[in-house]
Design a protein around this nucleic acid. Sequence first.
DNA 1: TGTACATCAGTGAACGCGCGTTCACTGATGTAC
DNA 2: TGTACATCAGTGAACGCGCGTTCACTGATGTAC
Lengths: 190, 190
Amino acid sequence: MRYTREQVEATRARIVTAASRRFRAHGSPGAAIATLMRDLKLTHGGFYRHFTSKDQLFEEALDAAVEEMSAQMAAVAEAAPPSGARAAIITTYLSDAHCAHVERGCPLAALGTDIARLPRRSRDVCHRLLMAYARRMARYMPGATETEREQHATVLFSGMAGTLTLARTISDPVARARVLASARAFYQTQ
Amino acid sequence: MRYTREQVEATRARIVTAASRRFRAHGSPGAAIATLMRDLKLTHGGFYRHFTSKDQLFEEALDAAVEEMSAQMAAVAEAAPPSGARAAIITTYLSDAHCAHVERGCPLAALGTDIARLPRRSRDVCHRLLMAYARRMARYMPGATETEREQHATVLFSGMAGTLTLARTISDPVARARVLASARAFYQTQ
DNA sequence: TGTACATCAGTGAACGCGCGTTCACTGATGTAC
DNA sequence: TGTACATCAGTGAACGCGCGTTCACTGATGTAC
């Protein structure tokens, strides 16, 4: 073997991480494998030594994005006083900074409509990943039962994702900030 | 001239209407001009007698979608007692029926992330169309000033669009209906 | 009124490009003997 | 320990396909005379 198992897995991980950013920034059709590999100083042919198809990469990249995002949100929640965890999440999620960085931000806001259009099998896989995200956020949500908290997380995060997506269509920074601020106020009082 | 002005404009309108459905269902990269024209019993070459590019069609199709959707929502609001207009909008927007028909539904929920990724010039055009939608809905929203009502409409509709998009990733009808019901309850009490 | 020509929506072949995927090949290292 | 062979991550050319766009052409109708 030319490379050790560690090297091979490191390369694979680099591809997944880079893909998770590029897919969020440009969508799957907008992110070509050849470009992705070239920017990693690799050639596109080698891609298929690691993945069977672009679709498989998409799923793994989404998994990585969900993991990255939910870890960030959990960190924000844990840093806040217990009663302010939900508020801290809302402030961070609907921040100008999050809005400005699709490629590192919430995969639902970045890829929602693309996932909704996927054929059933892939859509189910993706949806399961998104549900894990909601489940992880549930502990910071109000509600008497785990199910209630999960549903609250689902509605809150999908709602904020919609507003973030809309904010990203706005070129004017002032107008964009105003929409984000309105949404923060809206969800904070709920 | 082979065709009268009426015939030419009727053909053009048919193309825009069909495109507005197909773009919402499959996104712009997923909706090919050749297929679109073929289903209208036309050939793809003729397309360029009516439009200069696919991008131009996208903008006109989005305009039509916004018009269709906001007219539907306005009708629902007008049919309700004045104090119940907002509630009626929420119930209709977050209904199973709306969720099941992307191609006739809210363009923000169907195309949000695609629009956010457009180059600046087209994104501005699209965003202006979406703002007209919010402006038209503002009259049914609470708020002391027109600006407040518009901001409320913006946050409410973008939020509902995010949840609708998420609901569309769910294959199981029961789970999907549960998410929509939770969101209806959430926004109704706000 | 009749005839010749111009117009232009629509046709269908062709072009060019990007992209996912395949494949024969390379060459450094692991392994068998 | 040394040598021959196997492995397989990575290379880069090539394939096939879909798609946006172009273009020469058609032919029915409008218009000029």
